[in-house]
Amino acid sequence: MQNIDAVHSFYYLLMHGWLAVWDGGLVALRLPSVVATAIVAAGVAAIGKRLVSSRAGLLAGLATPSLR
């Protein structure tokens, strides 16, 4: 862990624990990314709603996952 960023160390530690609980299949591998993307989209939508309007928040939240 000395040669990688702290964020990646946390991610590897989290995924190691996650895959120890699950069987290590494709769903277990992809689920944390799907959940994180949904949380980010909801956060962007909430910020857009608060700053502009409900419609702008909804559109921003829907557009967020496609920006990667």
Rank of each mutant, 00 (worst) to 15 (best):
K49S: 13
V21Q: 10
N3A: 13
G24Y: 03
S53R: 06
I47Y: 00
H8M: 14
R55K: 15
D23T: 09
A6Q: 14
A20N: 14
R68G: 15
L62R: 01
L29C: 04
L29D: 06
L31N: 06
T37D: 13
H16R: 13
V40L: 14
A46M: 12
V7R: 11
R55P: 00
A63N: 10
A56N: 03
Y11K: 09
A42R: 11
T64D: 02
V34R: 08
L67F: 10
H8Q: 15
A45D: 00
P32D: 09
M1Q: 12
G43M: 12
L31E: 08
S66D: 03
S9G: 10
S53I: 04
L31Q: 09
A46R: 14
L19F: 00
Y12K: 11
V52M: 10
L62M: 14
R55F: 09
W18I: 08
G17F: 03
G48W: 05
S33I: 05
I4M: 13
L14V: 07
L59Q: 00
I39S: 07
Y11L: 13
L13M: 11
R30Y: 12
A42F: 10
A41I: 06
L19G: 01
L14Y: 15
L62T: 04
H16M: 11
L59K: 06
R55L: 13
A63G: 12
R30L: 15
L59H: 04
D5R: 01
A41M: 02
G25H: 08
L67W: 10
L31H: 05
L31G: 07
A36Q: 07
R68L: 15
G24P: 03
S33R: 01
V52T: 09
L67T: 14
G24T: 04
T64F: 01
L62K: 02
H16S: 14
